[in-house]
Design a protein around this nucleic acid. Structure first.
Length: 265
DNA sequence: ATGGCCCGTAGAACGGGA
């Protein structure tokens, strides 16, 4: 099965690109972040006509996450959970569900704005609560529900994930407390699917709209697919699809896609 | 040296993103 994550920076604006991308890349599961849509405006019908079921959690103006699943293959999501039960939060940044025997967690981590800011403190608290919740899910005790955590982490885990490591050193998205939390997530029993494979140097998932960021490949790798170690050997591909970033009026993020050999899908 | 764009909510700028 193919699973992907994409921060679309407004699903209202990007819906035609998402539908085009799904036609060209008929993944089984697509996690979306920054839909920026209230639930009544979620394009359920358009996606259903394209063959996808939707579960979603939105709010006005900001944030918003969704999980799309291909009807023909994995069907509709079950056991949907909105948010983190351990962390009451008005910001809609987390949705999880069971699909194809997997526990899929779609996350839009806070940006953090600047190291030392209130938003940075919220980011660290939010991640700590996510770690606490995922570790309470007793991963080892649920071998039949391997966990996949995917989304916009707003963390570049290593200097090779940064176009200009010196300029970004210690800055938000690259600071040590953020990277330490990324490692803590991995230590729950997950693996960064992208790093299971040889990858071209300077491969990123986000490029600033300003300063010709994409043309200069001045980007960061901040969108990730973390896969339960128990199924790591089943991952055959993980790649970042730069093509949508080349379109007119693109999202500033590119989709990340992984192929996982799962029985029956 | 600074900021340079895009989106939503507006119905003009501004907050937020990363």
């Amino acid at each position: 099965m193919q699973i992907a994550t994409w921060n679309v920076n407004s699903l209202k604006v990007r819906l035609p690109q998402v539908l085009d991308w799904l036609r060209a890349n008929p993944v089984d599961v697509l996690c979306l972040q920054e839909t920026k849509l209230v639930d009544p405006k979620f394009p359920v019908t358009e996606l259903a006509e394209a063959g996808y079921e939707s579960v979603f959690s939105g709010q006005p103006t900001y944030n918003g996450v969704a999980i799309l699943s291909r009807r023909e293959t994995v069907g509709a999501a079950t056991d949907v959970v909105m948010g983190n039960p351990l962390f009451p939060d008005e910001q809609r940044r987390l949705i999880s569900a069971e699909l194809a025997g997997l526990r899929i967690v779609c996350a839009y981590f806070p940006n953090g704005q600047a190291v030392g800011s209130d938003k940075y403190a919220y980011k660290l608290r939010w991640i700590d609560a996510l770690i606490a919740w995922l570790s309470s899910q007793t991963l080892a005790a649920s071998p039949h529900r391997p966990l996949l955590l995917l989304g916009d982490f707003n963390i570049a885990p290593e200097s090779r994930d940064v176009h200009d490591p010196l300029a970004w050193e210690g800055q938000v998205l690259c600071s040590e407390p953020e990277r330490e939390r990324f490692r803590q997530l991995v230590e729950l029993g997950l693996v960064d699917a992208f790093r299971l494979f040889d990858q071209a140097e300077r491969t990123f998932s986000w490029w600033d709209y300003r300063q010709l960021g994409f043309r200069r490949n001045a980007g960061l790798r901040i969108d990730h697919i973390l896969v339960d170690r128990s199924i790591a050997s089943r991952v055959s591909v993980c790649r970042i699809d730069r093509e949508p970033r080349k379109l007119q009026q693109p999202s500033d993020h590119a989709p990340v896609v992984a192929d996982i050999r799962i029985e029956g899908v």
